[in-house]
C-alpha cells in the first residue's frame, strides 16, 4: 500500500473513531466488524482457547469504546485496540489456573483418539486431524516465552508491522524482529512435520 493510500485509510479510520467517540453506535459497530477478526486471531494465539479469545475480543472493545475520549488523535486505533487485547489476554493467562495438557508431537495412531485432553478445540465440524493440528499448534505456542508469543501473535495474526508491534509492546524494533525470528524458528522445529518443505528448511539451518 502506498503512502497516500495508507493516509486515506488512517483518515477514514480517524473519522470512524471520532464518530464512535461521540457514541455513534453504527460507527462502533463498523469498527467492531472491521477489526474483530484480527483481535480474535491474536487473542486465540495467546490464550489458545476460542472461549477465552471471544472474551478478550468482547473486553477489548468494551474497554476501547469506554476510553475513546482518551485515545490519542492521529494514532492507530487498530494498534491501540490490539495492545488492549494483548494485555487482556495476558491478564487472562496469568489468572488461568488450569492448563490443558496437549501433546506437542504427533499423536501415535495406535493411541486412542480420545486421549486428546482438550476436546473443545475446533468446532464440531472440524475433523479430528485438524483438531489435533490445532492442539499441537496451541501447545507449541505455549512453549514460547510469553514475550515471543505476544509479538508472534501480533505479527502473524494481527497483520501488524514491526513498527506497530514495537509501539504496542513498548520495545525497540530490533527486539521485535529478534523475538519474531526465534518464535518462528521454534515453531517450525515443533510443527515442521505439518509442512514438510518447511521442515527441510529448518534442518538446513541447524548448525552441524
Amino acid at each position: 500500500m502506498n503512502k497516500a493510500a495508507t493516509t486515506d485509510v488512517q483518515t477514514a479510520e480517524q473519522r470512524l473513531v471520532d464518530r464512535a467517540a461521540r457514541g455513534d453506535r453504527d460507527a462502533q459497530r463498523q469498527l467492531f466488524e472491521e477489526l474483530r477478526d484480527a483481535v480474535y486471531r491474536v487473542a486465540y494465539r495467546l490464550t489458545g482457547r476460542s472461549e477465552d479469545a471471544l472474551d478478550v475480543v468482547q473486553d477489548a472493545f468494551i474497554r476501547a469504546f469506554g476510553q475513546l475520549s482518551r485515545f490519542e488523535r492521529g494514532a492507530s486505533f487498530r494498534t491501540w485496540l490490539l495492545r488492549i487485547a494483548t494485555n487482556r489476554a495476558l491478564d487472562l493467562l496469568r489468572s488461568r489456573r488450569v492448563r490443558y495438557a496437549v501433546p506437542l508431537h504427533p499423536v501415535d495412531d495406535s493411541e486412542p483418539r480420545d486421549t486428546i485432553a482438550d476436546p473443545r478445540i475446533g468446532g464440531p465440524d472440524e475433523s479430528l486431524d485438524a483438531a489435533e493440528s490445532a492442539a499441537r499448534a496451541r501447545a507449541a505456542l505455549e512453549v514460547l516465552p510469553i514475550e515471543q508469543r505476544c509479538v508472534f501473535a501480533m505479527f502473524a495474526e494481527g497483520g501488524m508491522t514491526y513498527g506497530e508491534i514495537a509501539e504496542a509492546v513498548g520495545v525497540p524494533i530490533g527486539t521485535v524482529m529478534s523475538r519474531i525470528f526465534h518464535a518462528r524458528r521454534k515453531l517450525r522445529e515443533l510443527l515442521g512435520d505439518l509442512w514438510p518443505e518447511q521442515a527441510d528448511e529448518v534442518t538446513r539451518e541447524r548448525p552441524g
Partner: peptide, 20 residues
C-alpha cells in the same frame, strides 16, 4: 527502514484459525 515490515506472505508454520 524495518519499521514497515509485516507478515504478508510469510509462512508462520501454524495452521489457520477457525473463525467464529
Amino acid at each position: 527502514a524495518m519499521s514497515g515490515c509485516a507478515a504478508d506472505g510469510v509462512p508462520t508454520a501454524v495452521p489457520p484459525i477457525a473463525m467464529p
